[in-house]
Nucleic acid binder design. Structure first.
Lengths: 140, 140
DNA sequence: CTTTTGATTTATAATTATTCTTGAAAGAAG
DNA sequence: CTTCTTTCAAGAATAATTATAAATCAAAAG
């Protein structure tokens, strides 16, 4: 996974202007390599950058997603979550508390780059159920 | 996969009232065992039931999904798609034309019902890329 | 059969996540 | 500098979905 300097270099080469809000968002997601939403980033950055706007957060996340710096994950039916840990891993969502977690599968998983004539460029695995904490609390 | 009669029986046992719009929606999705959206069902049924409402379609799809008659698939970032083919199969979305297709994996795939302390109740696999038609058209 | 009761429907308003628009500001290029 | 382009913030607009409230309907009881 690339570090900030390499990413900044690559984005500049692509002609993007690395303005203050973009750098702030990039730096924030890279320093927390986990799941984010537009809203959570907005709230976290509003303290330091009080006049950043939601639209900028959305636009920047879309940009970073297009450039592969973060991955869009669609495990949640009502919002898009962005993951700055871009190594492939399945995601799990607890139906009780709603928490999203990374999971490791107990076996190797490989998707061919061609399937039935289609070109496969990306794939996602989402698991649903009850997380360990909620099982304990509920005794199930 | 259960047929209409069995499903109706099971839903009645659970105490649901099987009203006309519910039956119509159920019958429609069972006679087209593929992907639907609230909107596509609404449009299809409006001819025969001119005063059915979107809210009813949404509510009924949610009910059918809760009861396992259809599956919610979240491959599309801006709307929920319902699949009335409830045998497990991965889904594919073409990034060019947006079409959603069922795919067969060239190997067996099994998820344990417990993983890292979590209870796994359901899982989804989504593939993204370019479909066979679009590849032909674009020559890629 | 009626009546009653609670579930369901419709129409519409509200909400939520996201995108678009606009004018201003900041950068890059000449 | 001056011009051309890109990006920004703010808020309006949009699309999918959910909530609300009044009307209707289905099923059970009488």
């Amino acid at each position: 996974m690339m570090d900030e300097m390499e990413i900044v270099k690559r984005l500049k080469e692509k002609g993007y202007v690395l303005s203050m809000p973009r750098i702030a968002i990039l730096r924030y997601v890279l320093s927390h390599r986990t799941h984010h939403t537009a809203e959570s980033i907005y709230k976290a950055l509003r303290q330091e950058y009080p006049n950043i706007s939601m639209a900028t957060v959305y636009n920047t996340l879309k940009l970073l997603s297009k450039e592969g710096v973060v991955h869009q994950i669609m495990i949640d039916e009502n919002k898009v979550v962005y993951d700055s840990n871009t190594y492939f891993h399945p995601h799990f969502k607890c139906r009780v508390c709603g928490k999203i977690e990374d999971v490791d599968l107990p076996f190797n998983f490989q998707i061919p780059d061609e399937l039935g004539g289609r070109k496969i460029e990306d794939f996602h695995i989402y698991l649903y159920g009850v997380c360990a904490d909620c099982r304990k609390k509920l005794g199930i």
